[in-house]
């Protein structure tokens, strides 16, 4: 059957993930996204290909190891600066990677046992993933949880996501799909019967601003949300609160109005205040930090915005 033929590019599978829908869940993160939000806290999700990643802390030093240097066919790796090994006074040298020479072939990761170098993005069949996530069924059952398919934009790998959600439903596992909504309506149509809950981002109600900042306008996103609601789907709306972009009272009010217009399809609104944890992750795949740096919004501000939405009769949580 087609199930086992389609492969998806996955960059992470997280067990006991508790922020991505009801109960205890496993979240599958797929690679690739058509948007490019500057605050993105999983930059490794943006590209569609596998990328060489680097976690310095894990490197045991070129003195003891240095195998990656020999393994690289492009000569992209050389010994870098000396640092102190964590918890000791021992000086070791990490490696330095010349990104302009690297083509993400992954040869170096095969010899790096400590996993300092690793390829972000691994191919899985639907069958493999189903096997993996089925292990936690007892936890889903006890907690009312299940599996969340996330990204990137999961619907960028539409066929795979569809097969995956279908497979999950066949195993009677609760499904959630975390999506930007920026996708061909037919993709939404296809997954609707197999998706118990859409985790749906509304980043900004003003389409031109949306386009300037994320790279795409919002009409299609809003349309798809209406489509889901009309078809009887359930939505958990996520609103990132980004300073000087989405944090205006006006934007939040419009968001509230829009959600109200969807009838009882919206079960919950999650406010996601900006944080700067993404920066560390950028450093794993890029030399320079492109991520947005800003002051996280204050608690009072968040509470005000929460109140606006609650006045629409919506249930709101903050993460």
């Amino acid at each position: 059957m087609s199930e086992s033929i389609v492969k998806g590019k996955v960059y992470d599978i997280q067990g006991f993930s508790v922020q991505d829908g009801p109960g205890i869940r496993t979240t599958i993160f797929l690679k690739g996204c058509p948007l490019s939000c500057p605050w993105c806290h999983s930059p490794e999700s943006q590209a569609f290909r596998s990328q060489l990643s680097w976690i310095s802390m894990r490197c045991i030093g070129v003195e003891q190891c240095g195998k990656c240097i020999k393994a690289c066919p492009k000569g992209a790796i050389k010994a870098g600066n000396a640092v102190k090994k964590s918890g000791t006074d021992e000086a070791i040298s990490y490696v330095s990677i010349d990104r302009s020479l690297c083509d993400d072939c992954g040869d170096c990761t095969k010899v790096c046992y400590p996993g300092a170098l690793y390829l972000c993005g691994e191919d899985y069949t639907v069958e493999e993933l189903l096997k993996r996530v089925s292990k936690d069924i007892p936890f889903y059952d006890e907690s009312g949880g299940g599996v969340t398919v996330s990204g990137g934009e999961a619907l960028s790998q539409a066929e795979f996501t569809f097969e995956l959600l279908k497979g999950l439903k066949e195993r009677k596992i609760h499904t959630a799909l975390d999506t930007t909504g920026f996708t061909d309506p037919k993709n939404i149509q296809q997954v609707l019967p197999y998706t118990d809950l859409f985790l749906y981002d509304l980043k900004n109600m003003d389409s031109s601003q949306h386009k300037i900042v994320t790279g795409v306008p919002n009409e299609r996103i809003l349309d798809n949300a209406r489509r889901i609601a009309e078809a009887g789907g359930k939505l958990q709306i996520r609103v990132p609160i980004i300073p000087n972009f989405s944090d205006s009272e006006e934007n939040i009010r419009l968001t509230g109005e829009f959600c109200r217009s969807l009838g009882d399809a919206v079960v919950l609104i999650q406010l996601l205040p900006y944080h700067d944890l993404g920066i560390v992750k950028y450093q794993r795949i890029y030399d320079d930090v492109k991520v947005l740096k800003a002051e996280p919004p204050s608690d009072e501000k968040i509470m005000e915005l929460k109140k606006i939405l609650e006045d629409f009769g919506l249930t709101v949580t903050v993460h």
């Binding site: 006991f16 508790v18 007892p138 936890f139 907690s143 949880g145």
Partner: peptide, 22 residues
């Protein structure tokens, strides 16, 4: 942070109960 709110607590209880059931 895992236990900072009621949902976190509920999920932890479910985690423990599952362990006990198993």
């Amino acid at each position: 942070s895992a236990l900072s709110n009621e949902t976190g607590m509920a999920k932890l209880i479910a985690l423990m109960k599952t362990y006990f059931n198993l």
